[in-house]
Design a protein around this nucleic acid. Structure first.
Lengths: 188, 188
DNA sequence: CATCTAGTGTACCAATCGGTATACTAACCC
DNA sequence: GGGTTAGTATACCGATTGGTACACTAGATG
């Protein structure tokens, strides 16, 4: 594997396990079995490594999500697709998604938070648009697409978070139950 | 105000805004207008400051929570109390709760995560026990108290998180809606 | 073959990191 | 008054921080 990929792989693991601030550049290059100038050649600085991780490795999730969230007048199906895509990506990119979650909840003024902000915003946008369109089909949802988006994203991230801590399993049963419960909240 | 309290106040703010790892001891003592030996006299080391914050300032929330979660055969009322206590504490201790949330979601092997672990576990215990007792009154809840506890805690923390980002308001309306939606999930 | 560029290693930088040795002061108790 | 203790300041420690100057090599291109 080329040095650039080695750095990214090590960075995902180390940042996810110890946190962006707690990982030194030296530790990172040791893990990747390279030297500092190589890292600075590819990424400019430490922050550049984090940015690259999101651009190259997390962006694909948002693309899949946008696809799954394409509303075709079947809300339960659409929500099901969104959950499936999210759970699937989180399971196949365990460490990466763990990194995303930790930084999303990180302090506002931390350096790492700035790196994820565009991606959390995009995630919210996608889900919000889905509920906005759905609200045009379901009258009693009108004016609440914002609240639905927040609750739904919160649910997604919460379940993925607990799955990482082995307290829950991201299976079809959970998907079905989640959507059922969510629908009750909507049609009431 | 005594120097000890000044350190704790500054630490809550700085840790919550920038993250535990990103705040240096020097920055902390400058903020509190004291010198290093004073800090090390009171807290032993940097980690000791964080520990003290949780022991002295966050523990009161868990005490209130345990009180509110005392199940008296009225589940909706009990959940309402839990939400009220949580939202109220989060609003009156904005920065402190923000710190708690960020560390709860922080990487497993980060130093700060170890500091909150006992408190997140206790929070889970309290809610789990509430649902365990409730399940004895409601047959269709049996065997699922664990899942209910996770979902409910996730909901609490999610709403508080979004309120910090000015995307939601922690009012009585939200409490009512949350419980209603949660009940639909239970009795189905 | 000559040249250029991407990539990489050695060695180094000032600044900051968490933490401490030591001495001093003020308040207390006997 | 003598001794003890808590609290605070000056000055310092070795280690590590993020980052870089410079020299070198290998491969591509003319």
């Amino acid at each position: 594997m080329d040095n650039r990929s080695k750095v990214l792989n090590c960075a995902v693991t180390l940042f996810a396990q110890k946190g962006f601030d707690a990982v030194g550049v030296q530790e990172l290059v040791d893990c990747a079995a390279i030297t500092k100038p190589t890292l600075y050649h590819y990424f400019g600085n430490k922050r550049g490594v984090l940015d690259t991780i999101f651009v190259e490795r997390f962006q694909p999730y948002l693309n899949l999500l946008a696809q799954a969230a394409d509303y075709q007048h079947d809300l339960p199906l659409c929500l099901q697709n969104v959950l499936r895509v999210s759970f699937d990506f989180a399971q196949r990119n365990h460490t990466l998604f763990q990194l995303f979650l930790s930084i999303t909840n990180a302090p506002d003024k931390s350096e790492s938070f700035a790196a994820t902000q565009p991606y959390t915003e995009r995630q919210f946008q996608i889900i919000q648009e889905l509920f906005f369109k759905a609200a045009q089909d379901h009258g009693n949802m009108k004016g609440r697409h914002n609240a639905y988006a927040l609750t739904f994203i919160g649910m997604i991230n919460t379940y993925i978070f607990f799955s990482f801590h082995n307290q829950i399993e991201l299976n079809e049963d959970l998907i079905a139950r989640s959507i059922q419960q969510f629908q009750y909240g909507i049609y009431s």
